[in-house]
Write a protein that binds this DNA or RNA. Structure first.
Length: 580
RNA sequence: GGCCCCAUCGUCUAGCCUGGUCCAGGACACCAGGUUUUCAUCCUGGUAACGCGGGUUCAAAUCCCGCUGGGGUCACCA
C-alpha cells in the first residue's frame, strides 16, 4: 500500500520510465569528468520512483579515424569498476556478472552500426526540404572562415549551396560528386528549458546550417545523437555545460524530424586546482618537470631512447605514450596527476571513495547527520535513492585531490581486514607484482591492521611496510634515530637491546599481541618505560624511528629476520664507535 | 572578439527561490592541544568567506542593475 502511494506521488501524470544515457566517444580512456557525468546520469535514472528508470550506454564512434575498440573496452571496464552499471548497451562480463544487453530492442549501441537509421532521417529531411547537399571542400570553407576572422566578423556558412539550381544539383549528385548534407537551421530563436540553469534562449543569428552528414557518409554528432536519443527513448539528457550551445541545434533537429524533446540539464565542468582544464597533458607536463628537476641529461629508463627523450624534454608540445610516462614516474618515484579513471585505479583509489567524492563535487544531499554536520559520506545506494537536479550547484568546481585522498583513506580504514587484504592483493596483482609476490592475500590479512590507518591509497600501503622489502643486511640506519634510541644516555638503549635480544632468542610466539606483551613484561622487569626498549628495537629492525606498532612490525618480519637485524644493528653501532 | 553560463572560507559547499532566526553552518586542508612505545588513527579547540559598485527595503549573502573575474562555445571532433 505504501509502495503504491509513493509511486503515485513520484509519477502523478506519467507512466513513462525515465531513461538517461551516457554516450562517450571511444577515443581514449574514460576521463574523470566523463565518469562524473555518467555517475550523475546513472543516479538520476535510478532515483526516479520505485523500481527506478533505465541508464543507457551508447558508443559514439562516428569519427572513424579516432575511435578504437580498445578504448571502448577500457571505458566499459572503468564504468563497471566504478559500479556504474548500464541497463541498455554493449554487453560486458565483469566479475562474473553480465552488464548491459538489449532487452528493449533499441540497439545496436554502436553508432557505426546504425548508419542506415541516420540515412533514413537525413533522406527524410532532404525530401522535406529541411536539409540540402553542399559541395564546398573543407579547404574552401577554411579559407572563407579565415576571411571572416580577419574581418573580425563571426563566421557563418553562407548557404551558397542553396543557390545551386535544382538541375545542376541533381546532375552533380548523379555524377557522384562528393558532398556533405547541411541542415536548414530555422530562422527563429530557440529556448532550452534547462532543469538546472533555467530558460536559455539563443538567437538564430548564432547558428548556421550545420553539417549533418560528412563527406565520408557518416553522420555528424548532432544528427546521430538526435536520432539515437529519440529511437532509444531517452527522456532526460544530463551532460556537461560545454554542450549547452549544441542543444538548440538538437532541439531544432528534433522538431524537424517530429521527435519529442527530452528534458535537458547542463552541469558545470570540473577543473584543476589552478583553474586549468584537467587534461591528459597534465601527466606529460608533470613527468617532464620531474625529469628536469632530477637533472637527467639522458633517458633514465630503458623503454625510452635518449634521442626521443632529449627531443621530448626540449619540445613543450611533444608528449610521450602513457606507458612510458608511467615507467618514468615509477623510476622517479613521483605520482602523476590522475586524470582518467584508469589513473585513479592504478593509484590505488577505491571506487566507492571516488564515486562519493565525484558525486559531492557539484551535488549536495543538503542533509544533516545526527551530530549536526552536513552529510557528505554516502554510498551508491544512497546516491541512487536521493539524487536530484535541485541539489546540484551551478558553479564550476575544482577537483581537490587532497579531499579525495581523505575520503579514500577513510574508505580504506573502514574496510574489514579480510576485505582490505582482498582489495589490496587484487590491486597489487595488477599494479605492483613484486608486492603481490612477496605477500599472499592471507599475509595481507595480518598486515591489514598495521597498514589500513597509515595509507590514503592502496599504493601507499607498500611504503608502510617498506622495511620488510629490504634485505636483513642492507638496512640503512638513520643516524639521528640511532643516536637518540641507542647511544644517547650512556648507551642504555644499546644495553637494553642486547638484553632483550637474548630473551627474544628463546621466544617463539611471533604474533603482534604476544610480542607486545613480551616487550611490556621486559620493560617492567627492567623497571623502564615502554619507550626505552621499544624505540631501540624499532630502530634496530627498521633502521628508522617510525613504523607500525612494535608487535606488528616484528611479526611482519618474523623471528629470524628480527634477530638477524638486531645483531646487524649492534655490530654497526660498535663499528661506528671504533672509528670515533 | 561575438554569443552563452557562472560567482559564499585556500578548496568543495549549506544558506539565496519564499529578505530579518547568519557578526554566515559543515567538510577537506592548515594551526594548537590531548591520547599513543614511534608514526598513523582517534578526540578537543582555533584561524578563515558573502568579488566590487549602485539601487529596492525599516532590514540584503539572499531581490534588481552595472562592473570585474572565471568558464564554455564559435570543426566535414564528439
Amino acid at each position: 500500500m505504501n509502495l503504491l502511494r509513493a509511486d503515485l506521488n513520484f509519477h502523478p501524470m506519467t507512466t513513462t520510465t525515465t531513461i538517461t544515457r551516457f554516450a562517450p566517444s571511444p577515443t581514449g580512456h574514460l576521463h574523470i569528468g566523463g565518469a562524473r557525468t555518467a555517475l550523475l546520469c546513472w543516479a538520476f535514472a535510478k532515483q526516479t520512483g520505485i523500481g527506478g528508470g533505465r541508464f543507457l550506454l551508447r558508443i559514439e564512434d562516428t569519427d572513424q579515424k579516432r575511435s578504437s575498440e580498445s578504448s571502448t573496452k577500457g571505458i566499459l571496464e572503468d564504468l563497471a569498476w566504478l559500479g556504474i552499471t548500464w541497463d541498455d548497451g554493449p554487453e560486458l562480463e565483469f566479475n562474473g556478472q553480465t552488464i548491459g544487453g538489449d532487452t528493449r530492442s533499441v540497439g545496436p549501441y554502436y553508432q557505426a552500426q546504425r548508419i542506415d537509421l541516420y540515412n533514413d532521417a537525413i533522406n527524410r529531411l532532404i525530401e522535406e526540404d529541411k536539409a540540402y547537399p553542399a559541395f564546398e571542400t573543407p579547404e574552401e570553407l577554411e579559407a572563407k572562415r579565415k576571411e571572416a576572422i580577419a574581418a573580425k566578423i563571426g563566421y557563418k556558412y553562407d548557404r551558397a549551396a542553396l543557390q545551386i539550381s535544382k538541375e545542376e544539383r541533381t546532375k552533380r549528385l548523379a555524377a557522384g560528386e562528393s558532398h556533405v548534407v547541411r541542415f536548414k537551421m530555422p530562422d527563429e530563436p530557440i529556448t532550452v528549458e534547462d532543469q538546472l540553469l533555467g530558460e536559455v534562449t539563443i538567437k538564430p543569428e548564432e547558428f548556421d546550417d550545420f553539417i549533418i552528414r560528412k563527406r565520408d557518409g557518416f553522420p555528424t554528432y548532432h544528427l546521430a545523437v538526435t536520432v539515437d536519443d529519440a529511437l532509444m527513448g531517452v527522456t532526460h539528457v544530463l551532460r556537461g555545460q560545454e554542450h549547452l550551445i549544441n542543444t538548440p541545434r538538437h532541439v531544432a533537429l528534433q522538431t524537424a524530424l517530429g521527435y519529442d524533446h527530452p528534458v535537458y540539464a547542463h552541469m558545470p565542468l570540473i577543473f584543476n586546482p589552478d583553474g586549468s582544464k584537467m587534461s591528459k597533458r597534465d601527466k606529460d607536463k608533470a613527468a617532464k618537470k620531474a625529469c628536469k628537476d632530477a637533472g637527467h641529461e639522458s633517458s633514465p629508463i630503458e623503454a625510452l631512447d635518449d634521442a626521443t627523450y632529449t627531443e621530448w624534454l626540449k619540445n613543450k608540445t611533444r608528449q610521450l605514450e602513457s606507458d612510458t610516462l608511467i615507467a618514468l614516474a615509477k623510476h622517479l618515484n613521483i605520482v602523476l596527476p590522475e586524470i582518467d579513471v584508469e589513473d585513479f585505479r592504478r593509484a590505488g583509489y577505491l571506487p566507492e571513495a571516488l564515486t562519493n567524492y565525484l558525486a559531492l563535487l557539484g551535488w549536495n544531499p543538503k542533509t544533516k547527520n545526527e551530530d549536526g554536520t552536513d552529510l557528505e559520506r554516502f554510498d551508491m545506494d544512497y546516491l541512487a535513492s536521493h539524487f536530484s537536479i535541485a541539489g546540484m550547484g551551478k558553479g564550476q568546481s575544482k577537483f581537490d585531490r587532497i579531499k579525495l585522498l581523505s575520503f579514500n583513506g577513510d574508505a580504506i580504514a573502514a574496510l574489514t581486514d579480510e576485505e582490505f587484504a582482498s582489495r589490496w592483493h587484487q590491486w597489487a596483482t595488477h599494479y605492483d607484482t613484486a608486492l603481490a609476490e612477496r605477500f599472499s592475500q592471507q599475509d595481507m590479512v595480518s598486515l591489514a591492521p598495521a597498514v589500513k590507518t597509515r595509507c590514503k591509497t592502496l599504493a601507499d600501503g607498500r611504503g608502510v611496510i617498506g622495511f620488510a622489502f629490504i634485505a636483513d643486511d642492507a638496512i640503512v640506519y638513520d643516524g639521528k634515530a640511532v643516536h637518540k634510541a641507542l647511544i644517547k644516555g650512556e648507551r642504555k638503549g644499546l644495553e637494553l637491546l642486547k638484553a632483550f635480544r637474548d630473551e627474544l632468542a628463546e621466544f617463539d610466539d611471533f604474533t603482534p599481541d604476544a610480542i607486545e606483551a613480551k616487550v611490556s613484561a621486559f620493560a617492567e622487569s627492567k623497571e623502564v618505560g615502554m619507550g626505552k626498549i621499544a624505540q631501540p628495537l624499532r630502530v634496530a629492525v627498521t633502521g628508522a624511528g617510525v613504523s607500525p606498532s612494535l608487535g606488528q612490525t616484528l611479526a611482519i618480519l618474523g623471528k629470524d629476520a628480527v634477530l638477524a637485524r638486531i645483531d646487524g644493528c649492534i655490530e654497526s653501532v660498535h663499528a661506528d664507535s671504533g672509528k670515533e
